[in-house]
Computed example of a mutant assay.
Amino acid sequence: MAGGRLSSGRRALVERVRGWFPDREFFMRSNGHVRFIRLSAQFQMRVAGAIAGAIFLWAAMMAWMVIGQAIAAYNQVSLLEREAAVATAESRVAQYRSGLGTVASDLAKRQDFIEKSVEGAIGPLPRTAPSGTVSDSTEEAGKTVRKISMILPEATGLAQVEARQLAFIEALTRFADIRAARAETAIRRLGLNPATIAVSDRKAMGGPLIPMMTGPGNTLDPRFARFGASLARMNAMEQALVRIPNTLPASLEYISSGFGYRVDPFTGGGAFHAGLDFRGPIGAPILAAAAGSVSFTGVRQGYGNCVEISHGNGLLTRYAHMSRIAARVGESVGPGAVIGAIGNTGRSTGPHLHFEVRISDRPVDPRPFLEAMPHVFQEASSGNGRVRPVGRTG
């Protein structure tokens, strides 16, 4: 049955092809004579097949030529790249063989470039630090250079570069210590404990162990270890500082109610007010008071439409009575980012923003943060520090 269908389909295909090449007759008249020329279907198909085969062969040859040229070009480029790499390595080996002086000169130039680049970005590096815990290896490094110069004169240049590296890493350590000290002082002025912040900062850390090896025999030079610790402390303190409320949450007319005990506007009795109320028109923008991550959006009893931002280390800011929420949970925001609009939702007598600052879920007065932070940031950023003053809105 299946074979019959296949045969019938093949016959239909043959018939269709034959239909393309019907038997044709031509006549030619020459000197009064008429001559008939007959072209059979089979002859026409042979001629057509020969032409198609010639075209296919020509196309295949052209494609092969193009592919061959592309392969040759690729091989040539690869060869040039390999030759360039080998030449670079060989030239460097030749420099080492020609003398350590050339290598030392190159390393000195690189060290000079690194020092100038760093100092150009952060300013002159300090020679001393208030803590006095950073070593000064200048004198000892000078003795080492002099001894090497007497014992192995050709290595003098390398010893000098090593001395410059140690002096440079110690200067960077002092710089990090000064910056960390400024940030710690600013945090204490706001009534917070820098040690608690540093501990909290290490609670969510991890990853594979990749030791730093900077000394001989795969050891860690203590001066580089000291620099790593200072840099980590500086980063922890400065990151904590920028996450402390420092920006007015809205550009409003005035504070209509302060933090602490007050007369409740609904009952007329004494009550505790856990934040600041900022009076303003419905629809006025509400701004994030500091950098952080949005941890809640929605309705809370008494607060109406509400947004909460977690700033790390147990610090949280709350924005209530919103007419519109413009943030989503998990979103990272910076100081001054629009997170909603002034409204009159929840337990409210008129359009305003209720703003709270909470530490470990305990409400604290936001006013000292908002009043002190611009000056604190300015002092912490003096001396080419990374922390920058945060402007107040309104």
Score class of each variant (00 low, 15 high):
residue 100 L to V: 14
residue 82 R to V: 06
residue 172 L to S: 07
residue 229 A to D: 08
residue 132 G to N: 07
residue 253 E to H: 08
residue 263 V to D: 09
residue 69 Q to Y: 04
residue 316 L to R: 11
residue 97 R to A: 15
residue 224 F to V: 15
residue 30 S to K: 11
residue 373 M to V: 04
residue 301 Q to A: 11
residue 192 L to A: 04
residue 186 A to Y: 01
residue 207 G to R: 05
residue 203 K to G: 13
residue 16 R to H: 08
residue 77 V to C: 00
residue 92 R to W: 13
residue 325 I to F: 02
residue 322 M to E: 09
residue 383 G to P: 13
residue 193 N to K: 10
residue 236 A to I: 01
residue 158 L to Y: 03
residue 352 H to M: 10
residue 33 H to A: 12
residue 305 N to I: 00
residue 61 M to A: 13
residue 162 E to L: 10
residue 97 R to F: 10
residue 371 E to A: 14
residue 205 M to H: 08
residue 355 F to W: 13
residue 74 Y to Q: 10
residue 356 E to D: 09
residue 164 R to M: 04
residue 143 K to V: 14
residue 256 S to M: 14
residue 27 F to R: 09
residue 85 A to H: 05
residue 99 G to V: 11
residue 209 L to I: 08
residue 219 T to F: 05
residue 119 E to S: 13
residue 105 S to T: 05
residue 217 G to Q: 07
residue 125 L to F: 08
residue 129 A to T: 10
residue 283 G to H: 12
residue 188 R to N: 03
residue 262 R to E: 00
residue 222 P to T: 04
residue 348 S to C: 08
residue 218 N to S: 11
residue 206 G to R: 02
residue 353 L to R: 01
residue 251 S to L: 15
residue 92 R to E: 15
residue 122 I to C: 06
residue 369 F to L: 05
residue 47 V to E: 03
residue 288 A to P: 00
residue 313 N to L: 03
residue 277 D to F: 00
residue 299 V to Q: 04
residue 350 G to Q: 06
residue 314 G to W: 04
residue 246 N to L: 15
residue 69 Q to V: 02
residue 160 Q to H: 00
residue 125 L to S: 13
residue 57 L to T: 02
residue 190 L to I: 07
residue 65 M to E: 08
residue 241 L to S: 00
residue 10 R to F: 05
residue 388 R to Q: 08
residue 68 G to V: 01
residue 225 A to R: 09
residue 10 R to E: 05
residue 60 A to N: 02
residue 89 A to D: 10
residue 163 A to V: 06
residue 190 L to C: 06
residue 60 A to H: 02
residue 110 R to T: 15
residue 250 A to P: 03
residue 332 S to A: 14
residue 129 A to I: 05
residue 393 T to R: 09
residue 48 A to Q: 03
residue 50 A to V: 09
residue 139 E to K: 14
residue 392 R to M: 11
residue 268 G to W: 12
residue 82 R to H: 09
residue 88 T to H: 07
